[in-house]
Design a protein around this nucleic acid. Structure first.
Lengths: 232, 232
DNA sequence: ATCTTTTCACCTAGGTGAAAACGT
DNA sequence: ACGTTTTCACCTAGGTGAAAAGAT
């Protein structure tokens, strides 16, 4: 899905938020390698504001303009991957897909959806938490997880699409929107959406690349703090 | 689903087999208790002939008659639950449903479906296999599994329903056949289909009851041979 | 005759953007 | 104006028995 995320990102990705909750498209999914097969891990996601701004879309110039300071932040939630907790062997077996995650603008949502402010910009984050079976594991909580951010997955939360080119790319690439297609199924051909994983040597222990994401090497003893905002 | 299985069994359950594969209705599902949470288990099903006979349906008397010796047995297959192998903790967490299992009469099937002879009677069996991590575990293969049969899940394989009352009960109880309903949704009311699990004290280590099935106590050291026909 | 295969309308279950209605 | 909510036709994906057609 990496190529598709990048296509959207170039236009300025928008994600619909609704009262009842709307899935993301593209779906956030990661491929994981190198986990301890028998250790348990919890996989989860959250969304952090990219900045402290509220935006509006200028149709005449087809661009996003700052429209003031951010509204009061929506209650921050974590989305646990529904298979959590599970042993590393299971996570590593195949692509992990967050396709049950839904976005809402309902501040009072009680369906466990992710609450976002419309017209605000967000960065999805992905967290891997090692389930430490030792006594007093809470003492190690600060080092038993790590966090990944993939810049190409940033998006603007909206209640209706603003940029018409985003709408067209959604229609062209989301199978569920096939009813709105007028031309060929995929603008760049379907091969672009499932290109194989590849890796970047980032140095140190963490070598990962968005597929959205290919993550390697998360041994239980070597987990590192990558975000001090993170808590469970 | 136990009450529903029993309703069908009283009429003489029939299951459709098709070339491309047909799901069972009711679905075979079990509730499991007492597994070693960290040990891995494989869960699977197979189908054994109830007898060595071929049947035909006498419409005038609305009954099944023996129509000779059984045809040559279809190639015997195992259906692995798609989550296998998985730790006991996961199996115990919720009802295990074999809803992806499909029945076919195609002797050359290459989709992994269960091959049955039409007009023959079958008994579904359920197997729990402990994945023994020790070296030379094959020496213990004979005792690392156990087998459960629930008589009320027996059925006749057919290519078209014979007993009209079976057809009516399928239409009345299978949501996917709602298009053929003329009267009320459920003949006995929906409450009958999801009655809570209950247990029979059978004695010894094995206490189980069909929900189709509630199974308790399958510790790795106490697995017992329940069928000498079983092999992997 | 008796059984099997194929096709099909009709469902379940639920994800799309369009458009109209609604707020403010 | 501008943003939100609701409704809806139209999809994806696939499980039903009925009925017609086919096979032996």
């Amino acid at each position: 899905m990496q190529a598709l995320w990048q296509q959207f990102d170039q236009l300025g990705t928008e994600m619909i938020v609704t009262k009842s909750g709307r899935r993301m498209f593209p779906t956030f999914q990661v491929r994981i390698f190198g986990m301890d097969p028998s250790a348990d891990y919890v996989l989860l996601m959250d969304f952090i504001p990219v900045d402290d701004k509220r935006y509006r879309y200028a149709f005449h110039s087809s661009s996003w303009l700052v429209a003031g300071r951010a509204d009061v932040a929506a209650p921050s939630r974590m989305h646990f991957h529904p298979d959590s907790p599970a042993p590393g062997a299971q996570w590593v077996k195949q692509t992990v897909s967050f396709d049950t995650l839904k976005l809402t603008n309902n501040l009072l949502d009680d369906n466990g959806h992710m609450i976002l402010n419309s017209m605000h910009r967000y960065q999805p984050r992905f967290h891997v938490v090692y389930v430490d079976p030792t006594p007093n594991s809470h003492l190690n909580a600060f080092k038993n997880f790590c966090t990944f951010s993939f810049p190409e997955t940033r998006f603007m939360a909206v209640t209706a699409y603003q940029n018409h080119r985003i709408t067209q790319l959604k229609i062209a690439s989301n199978p569920f929107a096939k009813g709105f297609r007028t031309t060929n199924p995929h603008p760049l051909g379907p091969r672009h959406f499932f290109s194989g994983p590849w890796r970047l040597p980032v140095g140190g222990f963490w070598r990962f690349m968005s597929q959205v994401a290919v993550i390697v090497c998360i041994p239980r003893a070597q987990l590192q703090l990558q975000s001090n905002q993170f808590r469970l």
